[in-house]
Computed example of a mutant assay.
Amino acid sequence: MTNDFMGPPWQMDWVRSARADRDAYPEHVRDLIDAIRAELVTVKDPYFRGIDNLPDLPEGCWVEPGRSTVPDGANVCYFDRGRGWLRYVFVRRSADPQITVEEVFWQ
C-alpha cells in the first residue's frame, strides 16, 4: 500500500436541504453554482493551499475558511460578488475522498 493520496476529480455530495435550495434558485444562479462545483471537484486540493493550486473560479467568486482557527474545517465559497455562498467540507478518506456541500444560500 502506498501513501499516495487520491487526486481529483473528487466526488461531491450534497446535504438534502442544500440540494433543494440549489434547485430552487433561478437558472443563472444554478449555472454559477455548477461552475463553482466544476472547479471544486477538479482542483488538486479543495482548500486551495499553495499558489499553484488556485482554481479558476467564475468572476466574483472567492473561497475562505469558515473559521481561521480551523483551516481543515468547513470552507465557504462566496459567489455572485458576495450575494450568495456555498459552505462545504472536504473529507480526506483514503478510499473515497469527497466534498460535501452543507449549505447553499443566495439572495
Rank of each mutant, 00 (worst) to 15 (best):
W10F: 11
Q11D: 12
Q11N: 11
Q11K: 15
M12N: 07
M12H: 08
M12A: 06
D13K: 06
D13E: 15
V15H: 11
R16Q: 09
S17E: 14
S17P: 13
A18Q: 06
D21Y: 05
D23R: 08
A24G: 09
Y25Q: 02
Y25N: 00
Y25T: 02
P26K: 00
H28I: 01
H28C: 03
V29H: 01
V29I: 14
R30L: 06
D31C: 03
L32R: 00
L32D: 00
L32I: 00
I33G: 03
I33E: 04
D34Q: 05
D34C: 04
D34V: 04
A35W: 01
I36V: 10
E39P: 11
L40S: 07
L40A: 07
L40I: 06
T42M: 08
T42Y: 09
V43T: 06
K44E: 15
K44W: 12
K44D: 15
P46G: 03
Y47T: 03
Y47C: 04
F48C: 01
F48N: 01
R49M: 10
R49C: 10
R49G: 12
R49F: 14
G50C: 03
G50F: 05
G50V: 00
I51K: 09
D52T: 12
D52M: 07
N53G: 04
N53M: 02
L54M: 10
L54G: 09
P55Y: 06
P55F: 06
D56M: 09
D56H: 13
L57E: 06
L57Q: 08
P58G: 05
E59S: 03
G60Q: 13
C61G: 07
W62C: 04
W62K: 02
W62H: 09
E64K: 01
E64Q: 07
P65K: 10
P65Q: 12
P65F: 14
P65W: 13
G66N: 11
S68F: 15
T69H: 15
T69R: 15
V70H: 13
V70M: 11
V70N: 14
P71G: 08
D72T: 13
G73T: 09
G73A: 15
G73H: 11
A74C: 10
A74W: 10
N75Q: 11
N75Y: 14
N75F: 13
N75T: 08
V76Q: 07
C77G: 09
F79W: 07
D80M: 00
R81Y: 15
R81M: 07
R83T: 08
R83H: 14
R83S: 12
W85G: 01
L86T: 03
Y88K: 00
F90V: 02
F90M: 04
V91Y: 14
S94C: 12
A95W: 14
D96S: 10
Q98N: 12
I99T: 07
I99W: 13
